[in-house]
């Protein structure tokens, strides 16, 4: 499963989200490849993704993406991310 973690710059919050998404996928025994994208390149990166993770503020910017866009409230909560991943597994 290819997952794209999107934030504004692609250097800060999305890296935290990527790391914790990898931990959550590992916990679920899910085979996941997680990439980081900034809001400018997210549309391209998301075109081949199975799932897009981002914040509530940025989700509206990704409305044209065909993959499901899932909002994560707490980027440091592996519990929350795991729950949302398992819903889309």
């Amino acid at each position: 499963m290819k997952i794209v973690a999107v934030c504004g710059m692609g250097i800060g919050t999305s890296i935290i989200l990527k790391m914790n998404t990898e931990k959550a996928a590992q916990r679920l025994g899910m085979d996941a490849e997680v990439e980081v994208a900034d809001i400018g390149t997210a549309m391209g990166a998301a075109a081949t993704a199975d799932l897009v993770l981002t914040s509530a503020e940025l989700a509206p910017e990704l409305s044209g993406v065909s993959a499901p866009v899932v909002v994560v409230s707490n980027f440091t909560s592996i519990d929350e991310i795991a729950e949302k991943l398992s819903a889309h597994a």
């Binding site: 800060g12 919050t13 989200l17 914040s55 503020e57 940025l58 707490n74």
Partner: peptide, 13 residues
């Protein structure tokens, strides 16, 4: 882009 940098309760990056 809004307050999305508040990535966890009480914590802004």
């Amino acid at each position: 882009l809004g307050p999305y940098i508040v990535v966890a309760p009480g914590f802004a990056l």
